[in-house]
Amino acid sequence: MQIELNGKPHVVAEGADLAQLIAALDLTGKAVAVAVNRQVVPSQSWAGRMLVETDRVDVVRAIGGG
């Protein structure tokens, strides 16, 4: 199943949830925030937030800036 991850096509398993996507990216426990279709999803809700085709996921972090 194809979703959009940070603006690019990304393949995830059918029935995968957000927690599994973050784990697959090796980002579990890292300082990141996630939104699906521009709605922020709190980390405690990642498990059980099933991904569906065409979902647009943003995974962001803090970097240096002024």
Binding site: L5, D26, V59, A62
Partner: peptide, 14 residues
Amino acid sequence: TVAIRRVNIGQDPH
């Protein structure tokens, strides 16, 4: 101040 940006997928997460 910090900026908020998309994670570079594939970059070393550690």
